[in-house]
Design a protein around this nucleic acid. Sequence first.
DNA 1: TTAGGGTTGAGATTTGGTCTCAATCTTATT
DNA 2: AATAAGATTGAGACCAAATCTCAACCCTAA
Lengths: 153, 153
Amino acid sequence: MVSILLMVKIMKNEVRKFQEFVRRNKLLWSNEREIIAEQVFENHFHFTADELFIQLDQKGKNISRATVYRTLDLLERGKLVGKIQLQSGKHIYEHIFGHQHHDHLICQECGKIIEFHNDKMEKIQKKISRKENFEMQGHCLKIYGICSKCQKK
Amino acid sequence: MVSILLMVKIMKNEVRKFQEFVRRNKLLWSNEREIIAEQVFENHFHFTADELFIQLDQKGKNISRATVYRTLDLLERGKLVGKIQLQSGKHIYEHIFGHQHHDHLICQECGKIIEFHNDKMEKIQKKISRKENFEMQGHCLKIYGICSKCQKK
DNA sequence: TTAGGGTTGAGATTTGGTCTCAATCTTATT
DNA sequence: AATAAGATTGAGACCAAATCTCAACCCTAA
């Protein structure tokens, strides 16, 4: 009797994309990178590096803070996550892969973040850069204010 | 013989504006606040809190770092200076009073900052906020890239 | 002149993040 | 399967920017 055991590692599409990025850049694929990426893509919306570290810790994954930061950097370089700087100076992360580029409305009261995208504005930015002979690589637009819920309070 | 000594303190317009702001908010006007404000408005273009502290130190003004930071916060609250966050997470300051609102092109190579203003973009932002029932208080737009000089290198 | 309370300085502390380096793991090559 | 080269990791030291603490001091109104 012959039994064939097929070990297929189920890997989320996003995690696989990250693995491809890592290999493409001649870096090594490690357990830690996989665990961190999995957790990142389980998180919906925005999270901080430290939140991620604590989540992993609570799941019993003993991964050091340094590795979490290093891996988030890598995910950012691979354009799989985006890093957003808040007014306080803190950073939050969000998925990018599979998402359209967008900017943010940030509530100063409760911290709520609303995403939006506006093509016209992107075009204007390109035009301004061209005028200044500036080679535009990216941009960051944040609108600060009070969200509808907090206005009612 | 009678001699009248008229002591008129020459105060830059911007410094006076700050003084007014301080008084309006029922805070006290101190020597330190005056010295710091003077230095702020002597600086042209952008500077960091620490640069300001060092400038004062070199002039023999013994003002503590804490006071410099505190006063910059006040100046910001009074809308006399603006605080800009760079991608590195560091902050730089710039005058606002008497200047038109503007956004920034930031060279990733040499750090050069080019200011610009675009009305159409401001309008779009207001429209977006309105759509989301968001009470817009301010915004921050930074375009990152390579300036013309650095492209040639 | 005085009282009340805002402001300051020096240095400790916090925060978010990076660095160090020996031990460990990954991968390509035998 | 064994090996070697080199990438990665963990623990904790370290760093810079900024904030906090609190006693001493200064500003202002009365």
